[in-house]
Simulated assay, not measured.
Amino acid sequence: MRGARFVNVAVATVVVTVAAGGAWYLAEQRERPVPASARSVPVDTASAVTPSTTRPRANPVPGAQRTLRELGYQVREVTGELDARTRHAVVAFQKVHGLARTGELDAATLGRLDTPTTPRPESTDPGFHLEVDLGRQVVFTVRDGTVDRIHDASTGRPGKATPPGDYRMRYQIDGMRYAPLGPMYRPSYFTTTGLAIHGGEPVETRAASNGCVRLTNPSIDELFPRLGPGTRVLIY
């Protein structure tokens, strides 16, 4: 080619080449001639791509766990992870506040965590008792007229609804019982017909049991020592 000057570039040298249309690319030259006009190209610093300065969004889980624990939901420690126990606490919070029962820290839930309400018990009698709110599918522990703990729950499904009433605990089984309708972890019975507060089965966001009050196993472990014979259980 008349008038063209070429230089040899060593093997495996990476250079920036500009084509006729102005596009750039990285190329590895292997003893191929490069036009002298391509050896020195001004760099347009104004159009250079700069790293994004947007800061990553802070993890909302630790703050939510602290708030839920302070409010009495079933969070025992701040782990920073949306684990199963935290999700049940979130669902219980969503149930109490009439939010979608997603188990996620969505915008509506985070906003409500900033302005939470404390549920009021049905009974303000002195001493300790348990309350099962069938409409909201939660269980409250109440001490001297104040709700101190709130647990995610699943009660009897349509056709096998948990019967409302003012009950007293009758007896407990400290272990697993494999009943005809399913496993029951540490059941505490409040009727003579086999209805109990127990773990051992999934706690869903809706009424889904065979009439019993299902709680998570960690909730049962916490409650079992407090549900001895004679303990009041108010279901409404």
Rank of each mutant, 00 (worst) to 15 (best):
R170T: 01
H151M: 10
Y185C: 02
R149S: 15
R149N: 10
M169S: 12
H151E: 09
Y167D: 04
G159D: 00
P158H: 02
A153D: 08
S188M: 13
G156F: 06
P164M: 05
G165R: 14
Q172G: 11
H151F: 12
D144Q: 03
R177G: 00
P163I: 08
P158C: 15
G159L: 10
I150Y: 09
G165Q: 08
G165T: 04
P183S: 12
S188R: 13
D174F: 01
I173F: 05
R149C: 12
R157W: 05
M169H: 14
R143D: 15
G159V: 01
A153W: 09
R143G: 11
P164I: 07
T162W: 03
M169K: 12
P158R: 12
L181S: 12
M184G: 06
R143P: 15
P163D: 11
P163K: 15
D174G: 04
R168D: 00
P180I: 09
R157K: 15
P163M: 03
P183Y: 13
R168P: 02
A161P: 00
G165C: 07
K160E: 06
D152T: 03
D174M: 01
P183Q: 10
R168E: 12
T155G: 08
S188A: 15
H151G: 12
G159F: 03
T141S: 14
P164W: 01
D148S: 11
R149A: 15
P164A: 02
Y185L: 08
T141Y: 01
P164Y: 02
G182P: 04
S154V: 00
G156N: 05
I173T: 15
R168G: 05
T146L: 07
G159Q: 10
M176W: 09
M169D: 11
S188L: 12
Q172F: 02
Y178W: 05
V142E: 00
I173W: 13
T141Q: 00
G165I: 10
D144T: 04
R177K: 11
T155Y: 10
D152C: 13
G175K: 08
R170Y: 08
D144C: 10
D152S: 14
D174E: 13
T141V: 10
Q172S: 10
M184V: 05
G182T: 07
Q172T: 03
G182E: 03
S154N: 10
H151S: 12
A153T: 06
Y171R: 14
T155D: 04
S188W: 11
Y167W: 05
D174K: 06
R157L: 11
Y178E: 09
G156M: 08
V142T: 00
T146Q: 07
P180L: 02
G145D: 01
T146D: 06
R170D: 10
D144E: 02
P183V: 15
R149F: 04
R177F: 06
R157Q: 13
T146S: 02
H151I: 07
G182I: 06
D144K: 01
R149L: 13
S154P: 04
P158M: 07
R143V: 13
P183F: 12
R168L: 09
I173S: 09
Y185H: 08
A153V: 06
R149E: 12
